[in-house]
């Protein structure tokens, strides 16, 4: 078999807009220079290059229903992400992907969806929330749970306002700690939101993205509510270099997160050592 082109060759993309989300996170809107759509599914990721610095795997934060460009929400934490934060509008970056499986939209359609976002877990989940909003008739009840450590760490605050007011979503939120007296919302970890609602577990899919420490507690709450293991979906973070199943970094036992994931059902993960 002759390969069409190098799987390591990025397409060039232009940074068309950047927006601060929190002190540590920014949103970057990107447009492929050749005019192509990225062609992604919610929950997929790209490898973003800053030439001379390197490449990093980043969740796509926008819905494919938004045409012409796409967005990544990024915390400045490593070489590439810090360099990205220093870029200005008009800058050129490289994009490979989209990679990974994304959220299983075919399975979610017609069902109730319980979205659980912890901190920057909202970045990939926003691609799903926005997709659902643009195809609202395809889904049943949609519950949206968002928890983060402090009010200052809340991202997409404009959209949070919109979701609070929207009839499309049943929105619940919490912050772990809060000293701001004007905050009238829930104070506590995200699991404290679960007693506030009831669901029909047999037709509910939970979609959970957050820090690894959050998973076991939220999974337990989902099981408490009676959601079957194969209807609990999680997206996993791993070190990745290639994104295409070659470099070996993202392996969990025999599973390549960049190929079979990053989205897995709890049934797939519960007997997979080292997964969470």
């Amino acid at each position: 078999m002759r390969e069409k082109e190098s799987i390591y060759l990025p397409k060039l993309a232009e940074l068309v807009r950047t927006e601060g989300l929190t002190e540590r996170e920014r949103l970057f809107e990107l447009k492929l220079r050749n005019g192509d759509e990225l062609g992604h599914q919610p929950g997929q990721f790209v490898e973003l290059s800053i030439f001379g610095v390197g490449e990093a795997p980043l969740s796509i934060s926008s819905s494919p229903t938004k045409k012409g460009s796409f967005e990544v929400g990024v915390r400045a934490v490593g070489n590439v992400t810090n360099a990205l934060h220093r870029l200005e509008k008009g800058a050129t970056v490289g994009i490979r992907g989209p990679f990974g499986n994304g959220f299983p939209l075919d399975r979610l359609k017609g069902q109730d969806v319980l979205i659980v976002a912890g901190g920057i877990g909202l970045v990939p989940l926003r691609s799903l929330v926005n997709y659902i909003e643009d195809n609202r008739q395809d889904f049943g009840r949609v519950l949206l749970l968002f928890g983060c450590r402090t009010l200052q760490e809340q991202l997409f605050v404009g959209e949070l306002d919109h979701w609070r007011a929207s009839k499309d979503f049943e929105y619940y939120e919490s912050v772990d700690r809060c000293e701001d007296p004007s905050w009238k919302g829930q104070v506590g970890v995200i699991t404290t939101l679960f007693p506030q609602f009831t669901i029909a577990p047999e037709k509910t899919y939970a979609v959970i993205v957050g820090p690894p420490v959050m998973y076991r507690f939220v999974i337990a709450e989902c099981k408490n509510k009676g959601i079957p293991d194969d209807q609990i979906l999680l997206s996993l973070e791993r070190r990745m270099k290639c994104g295409v199943g070659k470099c070996g970094h993202c392996q969990i036992n025999n599973v390549y997160v960049c190929q079979e994931g990053p989205v897995f059902t709890y049934s797939e993960l519960k007997n997979l050592e080292e997964a969470i």
Partner: peptide
């Protein structure tokens, strides 16, 4: 063993 790391490097004249 086939695992690899990927990095960038730049010419001295940038």
């Amino acid at each position: 063993c086939v695992c690899f790391d990927v990095q960038d490097d730049v010419e001295l004249n940038l």
